[in-house]
Write a protein that binds this DNA or RNA. Structure first.
Length: 329
DNA sequence: AGTGGCTCCTGGCGGC
DNA sequence: TGCCGCCAGGAGCCAC
């Protein structure tokens, strides 16, 4: 599932082929992914040249320049408005915002693939950017650059992990007095933008913190460890071009490699790579959560309800399998 | 305000 | 073999 490293991988790949191309037309084939009408999307995006690609948390932003061609000086594209807030005669630069959610894929190629594209960007010279999305959770928006701040502000997006705001001091302050489990805290985009289920589990393992510890129980040194672990885990994800656990592929059809070095995520019942203890799974906030009970001990305050979730007893440390060998480190 | 739970959505999988 | 029900999860929404 696309999280910050996967979206960053998509951004970097598109950066090699998309800028400079003219977006001729946006075609919407599935209205569940389009928040606006096709007309409005085209009012903002059609007839414009791609000027850049950015990322904000798990959102991909495609910048386009002002309207080009014969329509540019004549009050914008023709055609009846289909309703909703109108771009009208807007001819300035715009930004397209894409969220891949669970299974969204942006595929850059000349021909459609086997799966139906939820939307298509017809480009010049003749190529198309296809948006495929099995579960149809992905979304596309188009707006004026001036509306971008409001777009993210209304969602309460937290700081970028690699931005200047995300410091150890910020993290300590954000954790303070929160009773929610650490895992739920990391998934909350209002606290830190871009962390999802895979990288939350992996960051907590790296920081040696139990996912059910209440956020407020984390001490200053632990917060420092968590801060470093979040950055290291996300950077490792980017370096490995994302995790292809379910369906992630980048715009060139390449799979990521981060799943090959996962420590705990979806490794329930397998030995921890560090100590050999069997990796366990618990549900936190409705999300599958994986951890090593030895490397991520329960000491420190546990979030409300977590004792019951774990059955009220400390799980016994599992014996190392006979054929287990310590990995080279 | 903070927190937890439900919902959307569909392919894959286990159980019968 | 075929059918049924469950599971996966990002983010928005709602209830407490």
């Amino acid at each position: 599932m696309p999280e910050l490293p996967e979206v960053e991988t998509v951004r970097r790949r598109l950066l090699t082929c998309l800028p400079g191309l003219l977006l001729r037309e946006v075609v919407v084939n599935d209205w569940t992914v389009a928040v606006q009408t096709e007309q409005e999307l085209n009012d903002y995006l059609a007839g414009r040249r791609v000027t850049g690609l950015r990322r904000r948390g798990k959102y991909l932003l495609v910048d386009v320049g002002p309207l080009e061609g014969p329509a540019a000086g004549s009050g914008g594209p023709a055609g009846d408005r289909a309703g909703g807030p109108a771009a009208g005669s807007y001819a300035g630069p715009s930004v397209a915002i894409v969220h891949l959610r669970m299974t969204g894929q942006l595929i850059f190629r000349p021909q459609p693939g086997e799966r139906p594209a939820r939307f298509e960007w017809r480009l010049e010279p003749a190529t198309t950017l296809f948006f495929q999305d099995v579960r149809r959770f992905g979304r596309l928006w188009a707006l004026e650059p001036a509306a971008e701040e409001e777009f993210f502000g209304s969602r309460g997006m937290g700081p970028e992990p690699f931005g200047p705001e995300f410091t150890t001091a910020y993290l300590r302050g954000a954790l303070r007095d929160r009773r929610a489990p650490l895992k739920a805290f990391l998934l909350d985009q209002r606290r830190i933008a871009g962390v999802g289920n895979i990288y939350a589990d992996e960051a907590l393992f790296r920081a040696r913190l139990h996912p059910l510890r209440s956020a407020g129980s984390v001490g200053p040194r632990e917060a420092q460890r968590l801060h470093a672990a979040i950055l290291e885990t996300l950077q490792a994800g980017i370096d490995h071009e994302g995790s292809s656990i379910e369906s992630f592929i980048d715009p060139a059809g390449q799979r990521g490699r981060f799943q090959e070095i996962l420590n705990v995520y979806q490794r329930t019942g397998e030995p921890c790579r560090t100590c050999g203890t069997i990796v366990e799974r618990v549900v936190v906030g409705g999300r599958g959560t994986h951890y090593c009970p030895h490397c991520q001990p329960r000491r420190g305050g546990m979030a409300a309800g977590s004792r019951r979730r774990l059955g009220g007893t400390i799980p016994p440390r599992s014996a190392k399998p006979a054929d287990w060998e310590a990995p080279d480190r």
